[in-house]
Design a protein around this nucleic acid. Structure first.
Lengths: 256, 256
DNA sequence: CTATTATTGTGTCATACTGACTCAATAACT
DNA sequence: AGTTATTGAGTCAGTATGACACAATAATAG
């Protein structure tokens, strides 16, 4: 059943979705060497929220997260990582949410299904900024990237969820390779280093970064060189798909 | 409200607990250098299950996990680590569970609240074997420790949950200290090494283990020596509470 | 066409950590 | 008093890491 209107969602949600369980996706993207996060603007205007959703009654929570990611960004086959589940009792049914829902539906019931307490499962994803065409869902005003250090006011505990996602991603960075969804097919070592520096929030030594990445074996060096910039032309690299995904599961070296 | 009977539980559970969300605790304990896991025997006899439970409508999921741990083991103030959330759609309402519930309650309804689909949040704990006095709850026949390599038939996806808990615990071992709940106040380096070897499932070099643990700074060496065994008397150590818990949050070295 | 300049690829070196091994000290037992 | 197994400490080669050096080079300026 396709929900084509807000009214239909409000009247049928309890039949289609699991109660008490929700998903929140923290979708990171890059732009101008800054880490961005995708947020939706509530109808109250001043408050933003993570792109989240509910779990179909016969749907795997991982599938629900992927579906929600696709609904918001149009992206498929992205590595979505479950990172934590948030279960404070007071995290739902707050004033801002109630206000937003009332603005969407005049006949909104204060005991409505969506205002019950939800435990939310957090997932994060890293996507290539250029590949994403953010479009808001039916219940939001806008969908836009925000700098991590200039976040707007956020709904409920969403600031905490973003912080935890970032912490977990930094931890995983030492074990898992990163960048597959963030870079074009061919890229320079400097591009890759920028991503690591942005995620980690600190500068890395260029020479040591080179050595480490090359020894990990997940990169293939091309014969071509990058041209266009001034100064010496760097090599171009691509990810070795096979080794990259092997490293995703079995782990890399000891990290940074 | 205290549920004093099975009938009360079946008739009031839906009023007291969140729907669709459950907790499963993987409680590891030591005995004779073997890692054990605490399991409950269903009334069907041949099948065992993790000590799990439900989340009170106004209860934090972490509190629910701690309450369930206490109900099963009598233990307080144990470091409980959330490690993963399991959300396959087919994980609930299986034949074995239905049978068990029917045996407990003749008038059991096939559409009962407890047979809805549940997403379960996994926690693990490490406890001192001797401190635990396992006692089964009202709906189980027995509560007992099982060797990890000789597990009985398990309910639903509980085997997968245990495997994931062990994997995550091994990963965390390189970042977090371990053993606080597993050893008496004073212990020998060999005691501690046994724990690491048991959890990791492989032997470690004695001299190198010594060096690493001492350099981490979380141990205080006592003047006393252990006496009782044959041969040279080893030093006794205790955990430095302050440094231990600091290391729990900020991390140790690079691990094993 | 040549010099300048910033960037890149590679090399070096001191330091720290790891795994494997050695060896003297020692406490209980014979 | 000698035997024996275990402990605490030390050595050493191999490896990874952080900091730095330097020549090669592609675009630009003159």
């Amino acid at each position: 059943m396709k929900l084509s209107s807000i009214e239909e969602f409000f009247s049928h949600a309890h039949q289609l979705y699991l109660p008490a369980v929700s998903i929140d996706n923290v979708i990171f993207g890059f732009h101008e060497n800054q880490l961005k996060v995708l947020l939706l603007q509530l109808v109250n205007k001043s408050v933003w929220a993570l792109p989240g959703g509910f779990v179909g009654k016969s749907e795997h929570i991982d599938e629900a997260a992927a579906r929600i990611l696709k609904e918001r960004t149009g992206l498929n086959d992205i590595f979505l990582q479950q990172f934590y589940t948030f279960g404070q009792p007071e995290r739902s049914n707050n004033k801002i949410l109630v206000k937003a829902l009332q603005m969407l539906n005049q006949e909104f019931d204060k005991d409505h299904w969506v205002l019950q307490r939800f435990v939310t499962v957090g997932y994060y994803a890293l996507v290539e900024y250029a590949n994403v065409n953010p479009h808001p869902d039916e219940v939001s005003l806008a969908c836009a990237w925000h700098d991590l250090d200039k976040l707007p006011e956020l709904l409920m505990d969403h600031a905490e969820i973003i912080k935890k996602a970032l912490d977990e991603m930094r931890l995983k960075l030492s074990v898992q390779p990163i960048g597959y969804n963030l870079l074009p097919k061919e890229f320079t070592m400097k591009n890759l280093q920028s991503i690591y520096e942005t995620i980690l929030g600190r500068k890395l030594d260029r020479a040591n970064f080179n050595r480490k990445m090359l020894s990990s074996g997940i990169l293939d060096r091309k014969e071509k060189h990058y041209s266009g910039g001034a100064h010496k032309a760097p090599y171009l690299y691509s990810f070795n798909r096979k080794k990259y995904f092997k490293a995703l599961s079995s782990g890399l070296g000891r990290g940074f």
